[in-house]
Design a binder for these strands. Sequence first.
DNA 1: GCTTGACCTGGAGCGCGCTCCAGGTTGCAC
DNA 2: GTGCAACCTGGAGCGCGCTCCAGGTCAAGC
Lengths: 129, 129
Amino acid sequence: MKYYSPSETAERTGFSLDTLRYYERIGLLDSVHRASSGHRRFTDDDIGWLGTLSCLRNTGMPIVEMRRFAELCREGDHTMGERIALLEEHDARVSEEIAGMRDRQAYIRNKVKWYREVAAPAASASASV
Amino acid sequence: MKYYSPSETAERTGFSLDTLRYYERIGLLDSVHRASSGHRRFTDDDIGWLGTLSCLRNTGMPIVEMRRFAELCREGDHTMGERIALLEEHDARVSEEIAGMRDRQAYIRNKVKWYREVAAPAASASASV
DNA sequence: GCTTGACCTGGAGCGCGCTCCAGGTTGCAC
DNA sequence: GTGCAACCTGGAGCGCGCTCCAGGTCAAGC
């Protein structure tokens, strides 16, 4: 079985060393292997799981909910339904978030357009906001 | 000229009273009118500006950059170019953010799909992640 | 055997963006 | 004129998610 050192894992997952330790500490990573020296040894499974965590985190899932998800995963296959529910709720929130971002982006683009119209044609007399 | 009380402004903009005061304090709101009592009186312009701030904030612009933008607005029409540049850079970041969210959302949906395949057909023997 | 660097642990500290608090004033309703 | 709610100010505190630190261990190279 292939093992990865903490620094290699950090590099592969995009998490910092401290964050990897932190995630283990708070229960997002369960029972990370140790070398006889006590040094962490991450597996491909760990890397994969960290990828999932990264994805959830970067879509705005709060840590406490990721912990809940991790817990469900640890509890076994009978929690599939709950896991699906959790992810689908999150998915819905992500959709809302994206929709909101789009709307706000449109607002910003409009503002830029308006600025261009005011700014370009002539040093017009009107005030600016 | 129409004036709005702090609480009415909070209601209209979605910002809390404390946030309105905070934004004024750090220079995101400039020279808010006062009643003789010292109470703030917001104008329609203020409300509009707060809408812009809300939009920028909710698309992830950090406060320090909003301050820069506010400063440019205060400096007058000759800063139009810089304002446009700032907003367009932000717009680009928002686009990236949205694209990233979409990708991650696809990952999550895939995961759900996979869960459904594993969970539904039979209480299969394989482990879960 | 000594250095060097990657790693360990427990716990403190930090940056951001608010949010809350104490102690006081204002102004409307009764 | 007494309540009461809304507001004021300056400054402290907080929640989140890390990030840093001190003091120590381990393993490999010279």
